[in-house]
Nucleic acid binder design. Sequence first.
DNA 1: CCCGTATATTACCCATGGGTAACAAATAGT
DNA 2: ACTATTTGTTACCCATGGGTAATATACGGG
Lengths: 265, 265
Amino acid sequence: MDDGHIPSSSQSPWLPFESRRRARDEKREAVLRTAVALFLEQGYHGATLNEVARQLNITKPALYNYFRGKDEILYECWSIGNELVDDCIAETSASTGSGLSKLRKLIVRYAELMTEDYGKSLVRFDLRDLSEDNRKIVQTAKRHIDRAFRDYIAQGVEDGSVKPCDAKLAAFAIAGSLNWIGHWFQPGGEMTGRAVAEEFAIRLTEGIATTATRKTAQKAAVPAAEKADKPPRNGNAPREDESEHHTRTAARAAGQSKRARGRLR
Amino acid sequence: MDDGHIPSSSQSPWLPFESRRRARDEKREAVLRTAVALFLEQGYHGATLNEVARQLNITKPALYNYFRGKDEILYECWSIGNELVDDCIAETSASTGSGLSKLRKLIVRYAELMTEDYGKSLVRFDLRDLSEDNRKIVQTAKRHIDRAFRDYIAQGVEDGSVKPCDAKLAAFAIAGSLNWIGHWFQPGGEMTGRAVAEEFAIRLTEGIATTATRKTAQKAAVPAAEKADKPPRNGNAPREDESEHHTRTAARAAGQSKRARGRLR
DNA sequence: CCCGTATATTACCCATGGGTAACAAATAGT
DNA sequence: ACTATTTGTTACCCATGGGTAATATACGGG
């Protein structure tokens, strides 16, 4: 029971006896990183604030310097994930290309998000554990995400890159597959998050695309609408800049955003 | 707060003052029906046994005549859902036809299950709320379901009805879409459960099928392997034999099965 | 060096809700 | 009818864990 599990010293800014003066936001983030991991591992109700605090080498009441309560921590975790999704959507919407092309871009990004903690929090946390106000915010955001998928599909139908279909149901089907990734994906498995993401981008659009995509049998003559589909991208990028990615995005998120400050006494 | 919400008298065998001698199993089932609905509506942790009991016109301790505790009720709800899935798989496996044909059959049945309470319980309940033993049982059962999907896909690849693909990922993608139905579907919406199910069966297999399915552009010449695909079925059956369906299946489930008896004092 | 602020700690409160004990009422069997 | 069993009820226990009050310690500025 008391096996400790002292977090690797690079994780917690509260080193037992050491310069414990870090920027406030860094600590806030550290709390959220620990909380989201614990919530995912043990479930929101299974995880206790005492345990969150213990993993950070502090005690429970100290958490209340940064958050009003457990449900606010949950919300903030979700919120970071949501900002990441919003970024995906914004980037994708800003790009040029067919509806299908945009849809695939979004799928890749969204799928990879689902393999990370903050992404998982979008689909594994229960809305009912949030306060009334926050729940409404989340619901609105969810509709926003759904709309993005539908819009790209509808757009694809219009420009001919997507077969005529019910955009609503197609979006549900695609989003369902993607969201489910957040339930089964475990880092350290056979495939990396990105590999899964790219595979899903093909698989999930194969049914509704007007053109074949695979290097299987037919050799798919690329149609006009597809020309802007895949700019060289970053080829085979160094891969696994993940930790840096995390801190970067988390820092940005904590920096701006309208999320509550905690301790506004 | 005290708005009552007395369940329609056709729901509870414990009518306030009336012949309250029903068979034990009927009562057990009534508990489960009420519990599963409440767990889905409020979440397992949000729902209290007091509330379950109240909706049945009894008091909390009376529940312990039938179940050892809250987590066992959760397990039993899940268990009924699992038996329904097992039936789907058994029926499907017993049928003849191509791998694709079986896959579609399973998808239709599974999807429709996801629109019902006991089906939803398979994907919305948290394994971590179960006892150690029950959790293992559930995990094993989940693997069994996953295997069914994979097997049909692999079989389809072999008999040529399905394009070569990674059966594992394809199964995840399909199951993900289906499981997600259990999160968004609400009876009373635009589509019936069956309509959604049939739409999904097409949509989810369109990408991996070797032949087109839709009455869209191409007129899909049905290949040899597909001949046994759709027997007339029951055409447009009277539809909505749901309540009867529920009681029937629930009765069977309570009748046989090795599930614990409750109060084995 | 002293004080104000931020941050953390110790010690506590207490609502909640799962679970139990003791007892009562209905039921079935002989 | 009398009794054993089942199936309820009322009244209670109590572990858990979120949240708070009072207080101590570190730090930065004048």
